[in-house]
Design a protein around this nucleic acid. Structure first.
Lengths: 102, 102
DNA sequence: TAAACTTACTTACATAATGTAACTAACTAA
DNA sequence: TTAGTTAGTTACATTATGTAAGTAAGTTTA
């Protein structure tokens, strides 16, 4: 009777169910951003943000680029795989506007 | 510089970011179901399932109905608010099919 | 020259969330 | 009377997260 749910779907939901991951990806939809920007706009601690960014990079959903300026600039951005989440995010925007109160 | 994200969107993402919540709702898209069915198909423990169902009921996303049969049957089903998540779930299905490996 | 500043982290520790397994309530069947 | 059912709850161990301080590499300031 177990496991009727598609493993790929389960994995996808598992990714988004990690606390902060969804908001981090949503934030990156508006363009490449650096660590401290994500940290303050999303409201996630550096400790967890660091963990999430590594996971997302390992999943191929975001990429990390180093610009050796002064001080060093490191930008995180969505890969094609990450950008492909946009329609889903738009649906969540719609749902939240239609069904949630402020 | 903080908090550029819409509070409604944040709340919606907060709901789906609770572990198991997304899968529970996805499972209920296929129709009303009882506690033990959700428990085994989703793979969540009774302890957490109980907690999630209460939260979702409080949010008006699911409803709980008691049928005084023998033994008692209790069914959980989506409200209109819950059903409205279907397009989002379809997008996640698509994404997972297109971008994830088994 | 040394103290202070910047970003991008990491570490240590406390608290909160989840997993596991046993237990309860209400009722029926054997 | 004993056992079985569903729908939970409880106690306790483990894991995840929050908080705050610390680190590394480099630059600017005093």
């Amino acid at each position: 009777m177990d496991k009727l749910i598609c493993p790929k779907f389960e994995k996808a939901m598992g990714l988004l169910s990690q606390r902060w991951t969804g908001l981090i990806l949503y934030q990156l939809l508006s363009g490449p951003q650096r660590f401290c920007t994500i940290e303050s706009s999303v409201g996630v601690s550096g400790r967890v943000l660091s963990e999430r960014l590594k996971d997302l990079e390992n999943e191929g959903i975001i990429k990390r680029e180093v610009f050796p300026e002064t001080p060093v600039r490191i930008e995180y951005s969505l890969t094609d795989k990450g950008l492909a989440l946009e329609p889903l995010m738009k649906e969540l925007e719609k749902w939240s506007q239609n069904w949630l109160e402020a």
